[in-house]
Write a protein that binds this DNA or RNA. Structure first.
Lengths: 243, 243
DNA sequence: TCTCCGATATGTCGTAGTTTAATGCGCGGC
DNA sequence: GCCGCGCATTAAACTACGACATATCGGAGA
């Protein structure tokens, strides 16, 4: 529910409550160009200083950290509408990498767009802080999932969340959504081994709950998936609509 | 390293690079009061809408989410200097709870302070976005830790990080720092069971690495602790100095 | 067509970590 | 004084998951 702070014109906004079309259109006016990249492209590299910010228009990708051990922690999956690289704007160094897993079409912003926002459009600048807070919220959720749920529940929850987001984006065709990732990506996101991820996927498949094949996820029994994920099937969906 | 964006006066800032004294003093001018609370007080409750923001002046606390199962995910430990409740400022609902584990002294800001910042002081407003990005960075680190490290390494890393932060705050007396939490708190932060946390603490104690007793942590062998934590002993310390 | 490689698939086995349950210990209340 | 409560401690039984080993499948390239 949108509310207005009594004392100021800044609009507080919940995570289920994306920016309006007008607000989005407004921000897009400050873009510095568009960009297309192929699957496999590394858009941002941790440690580097990328002076660009993006919103994803089409395609999918993922955000990850590399560990000293050579392993990888996938932080989240990036879907159309997501804002990419806020860190690149406010920090002197990227803290994670961003990789395209399909061909991606992006809207590019220059870092100076940030200054324009903060100087001339405090309400939109406020939205950027909101975006960062939303990111933080979802990371907190992930933390709880990795800390407290067993493998099958983690996978089920990932599926439900991705499915809800895809639904909000109109990417569902008959309970089927594109999910162009490797099993290793999911494993790295959920803190599981590849092998165990694979076996758990088999379980879900054989139980007629969900089938993930050839880059597309087919939810056969949403209700049961939710129950495995320890979610109510009629909860407010986790659409995570950013910008 | 501080750098200036070529096109704007906003200062990008790394996580090791806290706000200057001048900047802090400036923001403190907008406080609406001070507050003292006892140990055990719940400062903010998830689901509620707290119109206040705080910086912690003295004492310690923790930030956590409650799970449907009744369990708890501790998101992080709160030390003096930390900014609390940015979410409360930008979201219509808190996504986590904040609890004092000792008596705390706080600097209180009204939500309207945010509007003042965004309207009149874009550079300080920018710092708030930076703060949120820093939070996000550290959550990503925690995610990687929960996803990929075994119990003893998680505990060792928590100790090293807390020790480094305490050092930056001048809270160390002879390798000893205050750590006023219960073992359950640490377990909930690291996604371990209380029992296993306890056993691992015993191990560290008996190996002469670190002793945590009566709310104070004594690091006996910092080097070894770092090696268990899979950290270089001479790395740039994770001071996490926020405001 | 053959080979190579990346991804998926599947079985076995060892173990880190959970669960459960019992015990001790200090402290505040009555 | 005794009781109850919160927290730390320890032991024993059980299990989810990782490590390792191997097999299969399909696409790219020579």
């Amino acid at each position: 529910m949108n509310t207005r702070c009594q004392n100021c014109p800044l609009r507080t906004r919940d995570i289920f409550d994306p920016m309006t079309d007008r607000e989005i259109a407004f921000m897009q006016k400050f873009k510095s160009g568009e960009l297309e990249v192929d699957a496999g492209t590394t858009l941002m590299m941790e440690g580097s200083n990328s002076p660009q910010l993006y919103t994803l228009l089409e395609g999918m990708g993922l955000r990850y950290k590399s560990l000293e051990t050579g392993e990888r922690q996938v932080i989240n999956f990036i879907l159309p509408g997501d804002f990419i690289g806020l860190q690149a704007g406010v920090m002197s160094e990227m803290k994670h990498s961003v990789e395209a897993t399909t061909r991606m079409k992006l809207c590019v912003f220059d870092r100076k767009m940030l200054w324009t926002m903060f100087r001339d459009h405090p309400d939109r600048a406020f939205d950027l802080t909101w975006l960062a807070a939303v990111e933080e919220h979802f990371l907190g959720e992930s933390l709880a999932i990795l800390g407290h749920m067993e493998g099958i529940a983690r996978i089920a929850r990932a599926f439900v969340q991705l499915f809800d987001r895809a639904a909000a984006l109109g990417m569902i065709k008959g309970a089927k959504m594109p999910l162009p990732y490797r099993q290793q990506d999911l494993a790295d996101a959920l803190g599981l081994s590849l092998v165990h991820t694979n076996k758990t996927l088999k379980l879900l498949r054989e139980d007629g709950v969900a089938v993930w094949r050839d880059g597309s996820l087919n939810i056969l029994d949403y209700k049961r998936l939710c129950s495995i994920a320890q979610l109510e099937a009629d909860r407010e969906p986790m659409t995570r609509p950013l910008i």
